[in-house]
Amino acid sequence: MSRYYMGIDVGSVSTNIILMDENKDIHYKKYMRTLGKPIDMLKEGIGEMERDLKKVEIAGVGVTGSGRYLADIIVGADIVKNEITAHAVAGLNFIPEVKTIIEIGGQDSKIIILRDRIVVDFAMNTVCAAGTGSFLDRQAIRLGIDIDEFGSLALQSNNSVRIAGRCAVFAESDMIHKQQLGHNQSDIARGLCEALVRNYLNNVGKGKEILAPIMFQGGVAANVGIKAAFEEALGQKVYIPKDYDVMGAIGVAILAKEEVKKKGRSNFKGTSIHNVDYKVSGFECDGCSNVCEVVEIREDGRLLARYGDKCGKWSNSIDKDNIKLA
């Protein structure tokens, strides 16, 4: 039986689980759509993993993504890490001398600037989702193209159409206008790829010194049209790692390995958690005018965690020793 480290990335659009061995080789990889049900997806993913691999020994677990705290409550993680650090660690593992990491996911996009294997600067998109995966998803639906074919369609174009990429709403009306003028699908697809890249470089990449080697990861890296648009805009080769879509999970698995080495044991609750019944409920606290939305998670009926309150009235009310017995 082999020992693996599990990396879990619970993002807004996808939930990814990977298993990595001691040599940092990836043995199992699962990419699922979160569909707004992170707990169910986690359970399902771990359940399927157990079915696929029969017996596995999990030596350590790391969680990342915007749902990382929730994932930690469910699985019992050894390390909880933000996406920036996780992506940087994974990128460094792929190209040790990487200087720029472009990461475009479902609802956020990031740029990470590294020098001498150290993160020296980073940025994330602000409130706007233009220039992320959801933007492309939406426009592909508008064009009636399957998102998987979007990139190759864009590559067929010899003549791109200029589309405003500043705002998803404006891009859409601009695109409809271009369709009415009779431009073909592939030119519009290429125009959209270029719009997304332009938007990314002007917003997230604003003022950043983008030096080679440049890596491109995150779900959107599957789109060859975007890769080509980046290479054209930057005048540099852009490297896409083999496991581009689960890099966050890989990064946090690497961190979990180090953490377990330091700590000598793992907090992991075991793969049987997919059989456990988790119930999430919420209520509005009426203790003060903040009216916090408190979330409660119950594991087989027993209160596991409470959070969402600003003052700690509910989150601190749980008997912590009790949790350790789980």
Partner: peptide, 14 residues
Amino acid sequence: EDNLPTHGEYIHSR
């Protein structure tokens, strides 16, 4: 970089 520290969490404690 091999010495990344673990962070405390805000929303719950172990």
